[in-house]
C-alpha cells in the first residue's frame, strides 16, 4: 500500500503543524487588520502586512461542503474507502476554511451549516492532523 503523504513543514506552515502537534488549531493572523489567512500566505492579502502571527482559534466551525470519496487514487487511503472530506468554515471568519476528514458519525449526518468541532489525530511523533467531529448543540462533541 502506498504511503500516506504527510505534510512537509516549511516557513509558512510550521506554526500550523507545530500547533496541531500540541493539539491546538493555529492559524496565521494579521496584527494590523486582524484578518486570518489559510492556507498560510506570505503576507496579509487584505493589507499587505508581512509579519503574520500564529494565533490559536476556537476549533469550532460549520460545514461549508463535503464529498465522499469512493475511488482509489489517494496514497494511504486505499483501505479507508469510502471516506468523507470536509470543508469546514472556522467560526472566527467567513471564508476561512480548512479541510479534514469526518471522525465519528456518518456522511448521512452531514448538512451545510452543521456545527463542527476540531479533534486531533496523532499520526506519528512529528505529525498530528486536525480532524472534525459533528458538534453537539450544547457545544460539546457527540
Amino acid at each position: 500500500m502506498a504511503e500516506l503523504p504527510l505534510p512537509v513543514r516549511d516557513d509558512l506552515n510550521r506554526a500550523y503543524w507545530d500547533g496541531a502537534q500540541a493539539e491546538k488549531l493555529v492559524i496565521l493572523r494579521c496584527p494590523a487588520c486582524q484578518a486570518y489567512t489559510h492556507p498560510p500566505r506570505a503576507m496579509c492579502t487584505t493589507c499587505w502586512h508581512e509579519e503574520l502571527v500564529p494565533t490559536e482559534v476556537s476549533g469550532r466551525g460549520t460545514l461549508y461542503s463535503w464529498s465522499v470519496m469512493h475511488s482509489k487514487g489517494n496514497p494511504g487511503f486505499e483501505d479507508r474507502l469510502p471516506y468523507a472530506v470536509l470543508i469546514v468554515e472556522l467560526a472566527e471568519q467567513k471564508d476561512l476554511r480548512v479541510i479534514g476528514n469526518l471522525v465519528g458519525g456518518q456522511p448521512s449526518d452531514l448538512a451545510i451549516g452543521t456545527p463542527m468541532q476540531v479533534v486531533f489525530e496523532k499520526v506519528n511523533e512529528d505529525i498530528t492532523l486536525p480532524q472534525w467531529r459533528i458538534a453537539a448543540a450544547d457545544g460539546g462533541v457527540r
Binding site: L4, P5, L6, P7, V8, D10, N13, W17, H38, P39, Y64, S65, W66, S67, M69, S71, G73, N74, P75, G76, F77, R80, Y83, V85, I87, V98, I99, G100, N101, I112, V123, I127, L129
Partner: peptide, 27 residues
C-alpha cells in the same frame, strides 16, 4: 508531495482532481 497548499489536502486523501469539484456540486 504534501507541500504548499497540498500539505493541507493530501494527508486527508483529497488529492484527486474530481474531489476539488465534488463539494461544489454538493452545494
Amino acid at each position: 508531495g504534501a507541500r504548499g497548499d497540498d500539505a493541507f489536502t493530501l494527508p486527508y486523501g483529497d488529492g484527486v482532481f474530481m474531489q476539488h469539484f465534488a463539494p461544489w456540486y454538493q452545494r
